[in-house]
Computed example of a mutant assay.
Amino acid sequence: MATKKKADARPAAPGQNGATAVANGPADDETALNRELLRSMLLQRRFEERCAEAYAIGKIGGFCHLYIGQEAVSTGSLSLLRPDDYVITTYRDHGQALARGMTPRSVMAELFGRIDGCSRGKGGSMHIFDRNTNFLGGHGIVGGHVPIATGVGFAIKYRGGDQVIVCFMGESVVNTGAFHEALNMASLWKLPCVFLIENNRYGMGTALERASAIHDIHERGAAYNMHRDFCDGQDIFAVRKTVGEAIERARKEQLPTLIDVRTYRFMGHSMSDAVSGTYRTKAELDEYLKRDPIALLRAHMQDAGQITDDEVHALDDEIKAIVQDSWDFADASPEPPLEALYEDVYVDTTS
């Protein structure tokens, strides 16, 4: 039976690889877990900062959508998955790829359009894929990947497995037809899907309240008798709790869940968009910056005696070196040859 949870208003803003799956346990295990979570979020933040720099000097072409401010969503969710679970997402995908365990080298080389990129330089920023980590993209069409997620859920059930698929999307996706068709089928067929809305309030430059008749958008799941919930996306522990329950439901009961994870992007919609733009004020951005998910986790760990300032600085320096290495690797990687244009156009299924 579907659950219904009344949402309060959005939580007010007060005045080399990502995290691996680790179970909660005694104090030492909790400290180790939190350090991994912090490491994953810092890696995404420093990586994206360098991406902004690379885009500005022409190293990255095409579109580029940064994940800065939303790191608790990717890290909190993906730290709960097994290696054989699946992940699919939209075009704001760099942070999730790193959180899933893809190497910074392979992601940066893809952004640079180089042969050593995860998609051999053909996909770019919006099409990060890695079959080794079951990371199924990176999709540029708004909402186009949601039916694929339902299809993966169907395949899992058809094969008799107990994997789950986590499907990330922006809040504007809930107004597309593909979203509703996919959720209806996932609920009808009882598929192990976790549909996770990264609700950063603005679909490009349009506020949620101007685009959706329902502001508590997880309630869209009610139409399909689907479990639904919401959480504070700037609090990594809130994300882990809510998403963890959904993953367990999918794995044990093969039931889908729709989650409204309320987060905020600190950058523009893409690199072509000003940070504040004309659709949000600097004052609003400044208020949300006070709830930086990395700063919140760091403060929690310091209050609990789990990390010191010196250890944070050492970790940050280590991560900056990893990101610099990914830049150097991408810069040294050759561009794909012209004949690569004719590769992978068709798949030979007869052999």
Rank of each mutant, 00 (worst) to 15 (best):
T89H: 00
N34K: 15
A109W: 07
R131P: 04
D310R: 07
E253R: 08
R201M: 13
L258N: 03
D232V: 07
K6T: 11
L33T: 08
G117N: 03
A299T: 03
E343N: 07
H215C: 08
V107F: 02
K122V: 05
T31S: 05
A54Y: 02
S276K: 04
Q16H: 05
Y55I: 13
C231Y: 02
D328M: 02
E53S: 11
V239D: 13
D29Q: 15
K320D: 14
Q254R: 00
G244A: 11
L38Q: 12
D162W: 05
S172Q: 01
A32Y: 03
T75V: 05
I214N: 13
D325K: 07
N132T: 10
E253L: 10
K122P: 12
C167F: 09
L341Y: 01
L98V: 11
Q306L: 13
G121Q: 09
H215P: 02
L66W: 06
S172R: 02
R201I: 03
A238V: 08
D232W: 04
R131Q: 12
E335A: 06
G203R: 00
N134V: 10
F168L: 05
I236F: 07
R262T: 04
I259A: 09
Q96H: 05
Q96M: 12
L80S: 06
V142D: 15
I148F: 04
T75S: 14
R100V: 07
G117Q: 05
G140E: 13
G153I: 04
D229F: 03
N184E: 13
A330F: 07
Y67M: 09
P337C: 00
C64V: 01
L258D: 13
D29C: 05
Q16W: 06
R240N: 12
D325G: 11
A27S: 12
V275A: 15
N225W: 00
S333L: 10
E171S: 07
L315Q: 13
V345H: 08
R39V: 04
Q16N: 01
V243F: 11
H127Q: 12
R265F: 02
A99P: 01
M204R: 06
Q306W: 01
G15N: 12
A238K: 09
G161A: 09
A97Q: 03
N24Q: 04
R105T: 00
A52V: 08
R291C: 11
G268Y: 07
H218D: 15
K59T: 03
I197C: 14
G177S: 06
H94L: 02
E30M: 14
D29F: 05
V347H: 05
S272Y: 01
A223M: 00
L80E: 14
P104M: 08
E284V: 01
Y91P: 12
S119R: 09
F47N: 01
R92I: 11
R45L: 10
N34E: 15
I57Y: 00
R120Y: 04
R114Y: 03
D29L: 12
I259H: 06
T133E: 15
A304I: 05
F168K: 00
R10C: 11
T150R: 08
A299D: 15
